[in-house]
């Protein structure tokens, strides 16, 4: 198995998301970048596969704020290789990002045991899912919303679980090489102590790969970015916590819930 996990740094929505003065983008000053949950699960899934089947796991990212920390953390977790592509992620839309990765993989070479594992979906893009676009560009099979992978036929195929809805899931068989968009790993992502990450920072190296800019940074232009008008349907209960608890109990009683 030769697994590649793609890491995207997206603005953390826990922070205040402020609109910039141009009215078309986020105010960069307040953005804190973090890797998405699906990407973290993708790292975990790749490591679980490696533990079972052997092989190699590489994490790849475009250049973005805080990305080195995420790459070192992945190395500390047991990933074999970390690669940073020297293109500014924040300037590229999904299609251009997929183009960049397509040329990266053409350079790297795709073998019969290659498994490309982006996260299913990040929360900040309008143009769609990079994984599916990349699969299309590389003419590889694609399955998204994956929550389980078992390699079969000596690593030539994978049996994959995809989530549908209402708790239903589908089992698929796919020939490798393939692109699988990971939603969640079979186990929660492992924890790695900060001391170990620090140690790795001293010894391990992040490889850099230079690629030329894709033709068109973005297919779609955002005309206007804004906060939704809070419809404010919720009636907000005021008071201290105890008063609020009493009010809620009263509402539940009125409704015959208790």
């Amino acid at each position: 198995m030769n697994a590649y996990v793609l890491i995207k740094m997206a603005p953390d929505p826990v922070e205040e998301l402020d609109i910039a003065n141009d009215g078309k983008s986020l105010n960069a000053e307040f953005i804190r970048f973090k890797s998405g949950d699906p990407d973290e699960h993708s790292i975990e899934q790749a490591l679980l596969l490696k533990e079972k089947n052997g092989g190699k796991v590489t994490v790849v990212a475009l250049d973005a704020p805080e990305v080195d920390d995420v790459l070192y953390t992945a190395l500390a977790k047991g990933v074999d290789r970390a690669v940073k592509i020297s293109l500014d992620q924040t300037q590229l839309g999904s299609v251009a990002t997929a183009q960049a990765f397509a040329s990266f993989f053409q350079k790297e070479g795709i073998s019969s045991d290659t498994l490309i594992m982006p996260g299913t979906q990040a929360i900040d893009d309008i143009e769609g899912e990079t994984g599916a676009l990349l699969a299309e560009m590389l003419a590889l099979p694609y399955i998204g919303v994956v929550s389980g992978i078992t390699l079969t036929n000596g690593g030539a195929k994978a049996v994959v679980v995809k989530e549908f809805s209402s708790g239903l899931r589908g089992e698929y068989e796919v020939e490798l090489p393939a692109v699988l968009g990971i939603q969640s790993a079979e186990k929660p992502p492992r924890y790695v102590p900060v001391a170990k990450i620090r140690a790795v920072m001293k010894t391990a190296k992040i490889e850099t790969v230079d690629l030329s800019e894709p033709d068109k940074a973005k297919i779609l232009e955002i005309e206007r970015m804004y906060k939704p008008e809070v419809a404010g349907r919720a009636q907000i209960l005021e008071g201290d916590v105890k008063e609020i608890a009493a009010k809620l109990a009263e509402i539940f009683a009125e409704r015959g819930i208790i």
Binding site: S94, V95, T120, Q121, D125, I126, E127, G128, E129, G131, A132, L133, A135, E136, M137, Y142, I143, G144, V145, K162, E163, F164, S165, G181, I219, L220
Partner: peptide, 21 residues
């Protein structure tokens, strides 16, 4: 939806139409 996930983007590349998520 999960069922239709990834269809729009790939169709966009093949049809030359833009995809909005």
């Amino acid at each position: 939806t999960n069922i239709s996930f990834g269809i729009g983007t790939r169709l966009a590349l093949r049809s030359g139409m833009p995809f909005i998520n």
